[in-house]
Design a protein around this nucleic acid. Structure first.
Lengths: 354, 354
DNA sequence: ATAAATAGTGTACGCGCGTACATTTTTATG
DNA sequence: CATAAAAATGTACGCGCGTACACTATTTAT
C-alpha cells in the first residue's frame, strides 16, 4: 500500500480565489479576518477553501509578514553525564510549550554547542525566531559576553532560573534565597545547630542565592557561619557522593547538612551510608528541587519544591507579550518555592538502619 | 544602557552585491557554493558580506527552496502527573537534537493537544517541517487513524519506541522482547521460579513486547505462565504502588516480579515495603529503563537499560536521509538493550523468604 | 587559425502571501 | 433622486532568495 505522494503540489490561495470567484486579496481578508467582507463572500471563500483542503503556507506567511512566529528555546549542552536533572529542563520546557501552543506559536529548540559559545543573535538575524528563552545559562566570561551582545542588539529574550548580578537581563527566577533560608530554618527548628552546606558551582546564581539563604538563616538564629562546613559539588549525584568523604571527616562537627540540590543530596546520603552515617538518623539532610527521586530514595528527602513548569510558562508569557506589544519593557520575576518535609530531616524519624 | 534596536533593517543580498560590484546571482553562487565562480570574485563577495555582517534570511531561503529545513518532533501531552519518566523523552530528544544540529537543520517541537487527536499532516501541509518524529505514540483508534492518514499522504515520518502490529510504519525501537526475556531469565538463573509480572497498558507496544519476553523466558525454562500473576499498571510510580496490594495478596505464590518499567518497580517496592515485604530479600524485583532513580532507590534496582539517546539519534539520521535522498524507503530498526544487575534481584543479598 | 567547449557572470522570474492603494458597489443623507 | 460616505472588492507590488536561461570571456580541440 505504498502511498502516492500527494505531497507534490500544494493548493494555493490563487486556486481558492478562482473557485470562489473572487480575488486573492479577498481570500486573504477572509482567512485573516481583516477588513470588511460581505457575509456571502466570506461563506463562498470558506467553502472553496474547505473543498480544496486549502491551508495557508506558513513559510510564505512568515516571509510576507517578516515574522517567524516562533520562539527559540536554548538548551545547554548536556554531555552524557547529565549535570542537571533532566527533570529540571523537562518541566520548564513543558511550561513554555503549554503557553506557546496556546498562542498558536511555534517552538524552535536550539542546542548549545559542546565547545565554545553560541551566538544568540544569529537565530534572530536569520529570521528564524522572534524571541528567545535561554535555559541553563551560567556566569562565565564567554557566556556573559554573548548575553551582553544580545541585549545590545535589542532582540527580546529572557533567562530562566539564572540571573547575573550587575546586569539587568530579563528573567524568570525562583526565590532561592528564601527557599534556602526556609530549608535551613527548618533544620534549625528541628533542633540542629551545626548545619553544613553542600553548594554547587558559583557560576550558577542559584548557588549564590542558596548560600545567601543559608547565611541568613544562620544569622537569624545566632548561629555562626563556619566556612569549614561549606562544601562544593557540581550539582551531580556523583559530586555529592564524593563530598561524603569530606563531610564524614568532619562529622563530629556536623549534625545536619543542606545540599543545594537533590541529586547531590542523594549522592551524599549514599556516600555517608557507606561510611556508616545514616541520613535521617545520624545526620539530617535537606535537598533542593523536589525531583522525582527525592520521594523514592531512602530516607525520603526533605527538599524545596521549585515551580519549574510555572516558571517556563511565565517566561513564555512575557516573551509573547513583548513580541506582540513591541514594547521593550524590562522584567525580572521571582516565583515562590515551597519546603517539602520528608523523613531525611526530622528528628523523630530516625529508626531503621537494617 | 537601553539598546537601539538594530533590529530595524536587515542587510540583504542586494547590498552585498552592490558593495562587491557583482550581481545578486553571483552573491548567491558564492554563498551557496554552486556553479563556477572566479576566485577573485569569490573573495570580493565574501569580503563584502563580512563587512556588512550579512546573514542570509532563512525564511526567504526556505520560501525559495520550498523546504523548511526543519524536523518536527511530537511530544505526547504530559499532564501534571507524568505518565512516563521525563528521562525517557529527554534522552530521545537529546539524541535527535544532536543529529539535527550536526546537519544544520532545525528542530520544531510539537505538543500533542490535551484532548483529541493531532493532525500529523498539518505541519507538513503548512510547510513548517520536512519530516516528523513521533514520540509517545499509542495504539488507540484515533491515533492509529491519524498515523494511517499520515502514511498515505506520503510525508516522511517515523515512530520511536512504539510499533503497530499489522502496520509498517517507519520506526526505531528497542528489542524489548529480548530485553524482557533476559530480565526474566536473569531471575530464573537466580533460582526464582514463581515470577510475577507487572505490565503497562496494552496500547503501548512496549507492553506487548515485555509480555512476550516474559512468556518466552518462562517457556524456555519450562515454567508455567500463570495469568493470576500478571498485574497491570499504567507505568506510573503510583500505579506500581497500588499494585503492591494485589501482589502482597498473592505473595505466597510469588518469589520474584518483573515490572515493565522502573517507575512502577519503585512504587511497587515502596508499597511492598509498607506491607512488610522487602525487595531484594523477601522478593526479587527487576525493572526496566534504567532511569536515574533506579540506582538510588533502596535496594538499587536491577533493570534493563534502553539506549534512548541512540534511538533518537538513529531516528533523526533516518529522517534526514529520507529528506535528502527523496527516496521513500521503509525502515524499522531495533536497538539492543542491556541488563543491569543490582541488588534488588540477587539472592546473595537477602535472606530467604519462606 | 577557427570552431567548439567551458568558465564566469548577469537578467529575469517565481516562490505564496500581506497589504497599500485604486476602484467599484452599496448605503446613508438631504 | 442626487450625492457623499462607507463598504466591499480588485490590482499591484514587495518580502529575499534560488535558479533557469542568456550572454560574454576564456580555454581547448582541431
Amino acid at each position: 500500500m505504498r502511498a502516492l505522494r500527494e505531497v507534490e503540489r500544494i493548493t494555493t490561495r490563487k486556486q481558492v480565489a478562482e473557485r470562489a470567484g473572487v480575488s486573492e486579496a479577498t481570500v486573504s481578508r477572509v482567512l485573516n479576518n481583516v477588513g470588511p467582507v460581505k457575509e456571502s463572500t466570506r461563506r463562498k471563500v470558506l467553502q472553496a477553501a474547505k473543498e480544496l483542503g486549502y491551508v495557508p503556507n506558513a513559510i510564505a506567511q512568515r516571509f510576507a509578514r517578516r515574522k517567524s512566529g516562533s520562539i527559540g528555546v536554548v538548551l545547554p549542552f548536556v554531555p552524557k553525564v547529565r549535570m542537571f536533572s533532566t527533570f529540571y529542563f523537562s518541566e520548564i520546557l513543558s511550561g513554555i510549550g503549554e503557553e506557546i501552543v496556546r498562542k498558536g506559536l511555534d517552538l524552535l529548540l536550539l542546542f548549545k554547542p559542546a565547545d565554545g559559545e553560541m551566538d544568540y543573535t544569529m537565530p534572530f538575524r536569520t529570521g528564524k525566531i522572534d524571541a528567545l528563552i535561554i535555559l541553563g545559562s551560567r556566569n562565565r566570561p564567554g557566556e556573559l559576553r554573548e548575553l551582553i551582545k544580545l541585549q545590545q542588539s535589542g532582540y527580546p529574550f529572557c533567562l530562566v532560573n539564572q540571573h547575573f548580578p550587575g546586569y539587568s537581563f530579563n528573567g524568570i527566577d525562583a526565590d532561592h534565597v528564601r527557599g534556602s533560608r526556609e530549608a535551613v530554618q527548618h533544620l534549625i527548628e528541628q533542633g540542629y545547630k551545626r548545619i553544613a552546606f553542600l553548594n554547587g558551582p558559583v557560576e550558577y546564581s542559584n548557588s549564590l542565592d542558596r548560600l545567601e539563604g543559608y547565611r541568613q538563616a544562620l544569622e537569624e538564629a545566632g548561629l555562626p557561619l563556619v566556612s569549614d562546613l561549606i562544601f562544593e559539588g557540581n550539582y551531580s549525584r556523583t559530586s555529592g557522593y564524593r563530598a561524603a568523604s569530606d563531610v564524614a571527616a568532619k562529622i563530629s562537627d556536623i549534625d545536619a547538612i543542606f545540599a543545594a540540590n537533590d541529586r547531590m543530596a542523594i549522592g551524599l546520603i549514599q556516600g555517608l551510608y557507606e561510611r556508616g552515617i545514616r541520613a535521617g538518623v545520624d545526620i539530617a539532610v535537606v535537598g533542593y528541587d523536589n525531583i522525582d527521586a527525592a520521594v523514592v530514595c531512602e530516607p525520603p528527602l526533605t527538599t524545596v519544591h521549585v515551580p519549574f513548569h510555572e516558571m517556563g510558562k511565565r517566561a513564555a508569557e512575557w516573551m509573547i507579550s513583548q513580541m506582540t506589544s513591541g514594547a521593550e519593557v524590562h522584567f525580572y520575576e521571582k516565583l515562590e518555592t515551597e519546603l517539602i518535609v520528608r523523613r531525611s530531616s526530622i528528628k523523630e524519624g530516625g529508626v531503621t538502619s537494617q
